[in-house]
Structure formats: C-alpha cells, structure tokens
C-alpha cells in the first residue's frame, strides 16, 4: 500500500511557541488514520501544518510523492486536500449552497458531486437556501464535511467531527465518514476514542508535540496500558466496557 501523505520530522512554531517538535507520520492511501493524543498534544497543529496554515519551520511533507513544504495553503489545498477544521468552521453568513459553491475549483464540481454529497447528507438538500448560521450543530458539521467533498479531494484532514454533538448525531457522522473512506483517504483527529477506534485502520499518538507511537488500531484497542499512558485513564475505561454506547461524548469519559 503506498502512502498518500508522508510527514517527516516537522517542527512548527506558533509565535515563539515550539508546538510540534518532530512529528512524523505516514498515511496509506485508502485508509482512515486516526491522530490521537491529549489536549494540547499538537493534533490540530499537525493538520494545520499539513494544509499550510501553520507552515512548519523544518521537516518535510510530501503529498502523493511530491514535496509540498513551503507552499502556500491555497496551493496545497488545490493539489487535492480537503480540510475540515474543528468547531464546524462553516461560513455562517453564506447559504448552504454558497458554502458548497465556494469550494468549487472548477464550475461543474458541485453538479458532479451532488449525488455523493446529498446521498450522505440529505438534510443539506432540504436547507439548501438557508444561511449556514441557522443550521443545527450537527447539520453545520455535515456542511463542513460536505464542503470538503465538493472538489475531488484525495485526502481529507478532519478535525474533531464529533465535538459537541449529541450521540445520535455522532452515529450519523461515523456512518458518513465510513462511506466516505471509499472515495478519499482520511486523516482524522478525534478526542472521542470509541469513535476513532470504530473508524480507523491505523493510529498515531502524539504527545507534547512529538509522534510517539503508531500501529494498527486493532492492536491499540487491546493495549490498555498504552491508552491510559498517552490518552488518559478514562479512555481505557471506555474501551473496557464494549457494551457501552459506541459513541459516548468525551466529556463523560474524562471523569
């Protein structure tokens, strides 16, 4: 299996703060790879470094074999990378339609992909002319994901899609992401370990700005010691109770 994305020892600064101190990862094409770690471990910054919003100061990032380090964010995105930031960063003043249209890289993009998009998220069709700000939290998250699907992106960087959503909505996001993985490779940042463990094939664990562990998700689920060391005891407990709802909100797990 070839790697669609390779990140090699990147160091990223935000202001004077050294956030990423050597993150390396490889994302095999066609997979869902989860990026795990505690709050502040550098997961979001890693995604932002890849898309070019926080350009790394050193290291190498290659997308489909070619070096993208040092390119501007719009140039990197145009290569075929979709970014779904945390907090459902849709454009609130724009209608659902405009939110999707703005992501077009050529005129026919939306028409070509509308079957896929509205098949996954039929709600968006219903609220096509409504301002994004008036959608519910779950619908906004769907819109944010749908926006990344308008051009034929081969890699999706998805940051905490379950954040602040009710369990029932998380289920539908999980469904959507699973169907999506047939169309694009996904690099997923997720605090909700149950959700990540259901979806992902592989994982990377970040700690203090460094990638410290990687492997198959199936192995990680067995390894309670590793989970509680890097992700917290709450996660281990969540894994230990397989009969619990698949997608408990993270806030309850942390206790």
């Amino acid at each position: 299996m070839t790697n669609i994305l390779e990140v090699d020892a990147i160091h990223t600064f935000i202001g004077q703060f050294h956030i990423l101190e050597g993150v390396s990862l490889a994302v095999p094409a066609g997979s869902i790879t989860a990026l795990l770690g505690r709050n502040g471990a550098g997961k979001t910054t890693t995604l932002r470094s890849i898309i070019g919003l926080n350009a790394p100061r050193s290291g190498r990032i290659a997308f489909e074999g070619s070096d993208i380090h040092g390119k501007t964010a719009y140039a990197i995105a145009s290569l075929g990378i979709g970014y779904v930031p945390e907090y459902r960063a849709i454009f609130r003043a724009l209608t659902v339609e405009e939110n999707l249209r703005i992501a077009e890289r050529s005129k026919k993009d939306l028409a070509r992909r509308s079957d896929l998009i509205f098949g996954l998220f039929p709600d968006l069709k219903r609220f096509y002319k409504l301002p994004g700000g008036q959608l519910s939290g779950g619908q906004q998250q769907m819109l944010a994901i749908a926006r990344a699907l308008v051009p034929e992106n081969r890699l999706l960087l998805i940051d905490e899609p379950s954040e602040g959503l009710a369990p029932i909505l998380i289920e539908s996001i999980v469904d959507a992401l699973r169907q999506l993985s047939a169309h694009a490779t996904i690099l997923l940042v997720e605090q909700n370990f149950r959700m990540a463990s259901i979806l992902a094939d592989r994982y990377y664990i970040l700690d203090d700005g460094q990638s410290v562990h990687a492997g198959q998700m199936a192995d990680l689920v067995q390894n309670r010691e590793l989970i509680s060391r890097y992700l917290g005891a709450g996660y281990a407990a969540a894994v230990a109770a397989p009969e619990s709802p698949a997608v408990m909100p993270t806030a309850q797990q942390g206790a």
């Binding site: 898309i51 070019g52 919003l53 501007t72 964010a73 719009y74 995105a77 145009s78 970014y83 930031p85 960063a89 454009f91 609130r92 003043a93 724009l94 405009e98 939110n99 249209r101 703005i102 992501a103 890289r105 926006r147 051009p151």
Partner: peptide
C-alpha cells in the same frame, strides 16, 4: 458573483477560504 461569495466568506474566516484552495 463568486468573488462576492469569497469576500463575504473571507470577512468571517479568510484562513478557511485559503484552506479551500482559493488565493485569498
């Protein structure tokens, strides 16, 4: 116009507009 949509989106979040592949 498309440029108008980009401007209105950029007023809220110009970084995200860029991350969509638009030279903001």
């Amino acid at each position: 116009s498309r440029i108008g949509i980009i401007i209105r989106a950029g007023v809220q979040d110009s970084e995200m507009v860029q991350a969509l592949g638009i030279n903001v």
